[in-house]
């Protein structure tokens, strides 16, 4: 049986009906077409599905959709505002932190949550803050550089 669900995603409200077994990731991707949020494992280990829920970064594959009822969700599609890229997105481009790009949306969301809480992180703090997001392409080097670069830009 399906249950009603009210989701606020990227400042838009959706009234949906979902099964209790559906996770937030699949609802975002399959019901709302927001496929910027990626699927890489379903066990909470890869971080590709990371979104921000009420200000906290979460692995959306581990959240049942109904648990997100009434919550504010931010996905990668909501990161840029009025066609203006978020500083993190700019830095990911400038610092060449993107390769295959499959981890990128999750990385960006984790990085945003990190900078929201700690606007001036050290290199060590960024490495620590992103450890829940696996990237198989980059060795994280340029990703960490990009996050530090964005922190600087946001701080200015």
């Amino acid at each position: 049986m399906k249950y009603p669900l009210k989701l606020h995603v990227n400042q838009r409200t959706y009234n949906l009906e979902v099964y209790p077994s559906q996770n937030l990731r699949d609802v975002l991707r399959e019901e709302l077409g927001l496929t910027g949020t990626k699927e890489g494992c379903s066990t909470g280990n890869c971080g590709a599905c990371t979104v921000i829920m009420n200000g906290m970064s979460v692995k959306s594959c581990l959240i049942l959709a109904l648990q997100a009822d009434g919550k504010e969700i931010l996905t990668v599609e909501g990161l840029s505002t009025n066609g203006q890229l978020h500083p993190l997105q700019e830095s990911f481009i400038d610092k060449q932190a993107v390769q295959c790009g499959y981890c990128t949306p999750g990385m960006l969301m984790s990085a945003k949550a990190l900078l929201d809480q700690n606007p001036n992180p050290t290199e060590e703090e960024v490495r620590d803050g992103l450890h829940g997001n696996i990237c198989r392409c980059t060795g994280y080097v340029k990703i960490v550089e990009a996050v530090l670069d964005a922190a600087e830009k946001i701080g200015q």
Partner: peptide
């Protein structure tokens, strides 16, 4: 020259097409 990647904008905005996202 280290031009910025051709695909970077699509990828940082979550718009880059991947087959895993196809329904």
């Amino acid at each position: 020259k280290s031009v910025k990647r051709y695909d970077a904008l699509e990828k940082v905005t979550g718009k880059a097409p991947f087959v895993y996202d196809m329904f």
